[in-house]
Nucleic acid binder design. Structure first.
Lengths: 199, 199
DNA sequence: AAAATTACAAGTTACGAATTTTGTTATTTG
DNA sequence: CAAATAACAAAATTCGTAACTTGTAATTTT
């Protein structure tokens, strides 16, 4: 992890706050710079564009979430436990962001929809975590899929509804308990499907 | 099915063409009326608002799709076959609309996102078809789920990614063959899950 | 020399006036 | 009297312009 310069950190934290409070629409480089106590031109010494600054804010959240997921994947527990917790943690992280910080969620959602580099990379890294845990399960004998690649695609496709921002937005008003119940059914099924070689 | 008056039919067909060619943004009651050879005020004799006219166009497509799904559900084949064809037909209908008529797809997508009555009702009817076929499978012994309601929710949630407009838009550029392969894995798994009582 | 500022061109947004569209009602037509 | 139109108010959209924001380059500060 590169050490950030103090000004860069300051800009980032002001930008985060600004995005959270005012949303993408009203997020301006001029306002961020002013609140960070500098002229807007100086912001461009650290971030090449407004879009890059917004992406950096989103990336901060993505990386923090990734770290929590990696902690699960790196844990000593059985692979099926870890896969379950991985899916739940990812689903909850996104869902909590939607309810607790809608503006940042919207920015993330856009980054995903428009396939920004940060979201493509995040997606690749999260997918790698899933692959690692599933491979670990195969190695330990907990999972016995007929086709490893299809098994991975299956897990990702089946859980999509509870993980992808675009799908989460659709159910913002459904009681969390009901969503949780459906997700846990889905996970339970996925684990059995992986362990019994259905996929 | 109520017999429509000739003017109403004419308006609807001009409106369909207009929506398909120009999209929601440029779809105006005035232009539709003009092309249908009448003043815009007369359109309001048949449709209470611009929004209602757009919804009527979308509903035309939804109903046509529903009829094809109902034909499958009403067929004499085994329930597992019918469920597979139901899911495939629904996924393909939406996917084909996206590629062949993006403007109508966008209008449908909005109706779904904004929970218009037409889309809520369509959803309820399509869900009822799924329930019917699954119940039929339970009656015939082809499916033996532990919990019927959870089984239905599972099928709908797991296939969501390949059926819901918001999710389909995300994969517009993925080769159809690859999407089809993933969907058929998902369906195969779902059928086994239903038949073996995993859910 | 690094960090910041000033100054400026290019692009975007905000805003009010003009126009168009929506939706209603009273009236005409066949 | 059913179908359509004309006429109109209210709402939405477009258009042009002013203000602001973005991004760059030359200059100043520390």
């Amino acid at each position: 992890m590169p050490t950030r310069e103090p000004s860069e950190t300051r800009i980032l934290s002001v930008a985060s706050e600004h995005l959270r409070l005012h949303g993408l629409r009203r997020f301006t480089v001029v306002a961020v710079a002013e609140e960070a106590g500098m002229t807007h031109a100086n912001v461009y010494r650290y971030f090449p564009s407004r879009a890059a600054l917004v992406d950096a804010v989103v990336d901060l959240w993505l990386k923090a979430t990734e770290r929590r997921l990696a902690d699960i994947a790196d844990g000593p527990d059985p692979a099926d436990d870890k896969l379950e917790r991985l899916i739940l943690a990812l689903a909850r992280a996104n869902r909590d962001l939607l309810s607790e910080d809608p503006h940042l969620f919207a920015a993330l959602s856009q980054a995903v929809a428009k396939r920004h580099a940060i979201s493509r990379r995040n997606r690749a890294r999260v997918r790698a975590l899933f692959e690692r845990v599933i491979d670990e399960g195969i190695a330990s004998g907990a999972f016995e899929p007929r086709d490893r690649d299809k098994a991975i695609a299956y897990v990702i496709d089946a859980t999509h509804r509870f993980i992808h921002p675009a799908s989460l937005e659709l159910e913002a008003d459904v009681p969390q308990a009901s969503v949780d119940a459906r997700l846990s059914t889905l996970i339970r099924v996925a684990l059995r499907v992986l362990s019994t070689g259905i996929v």
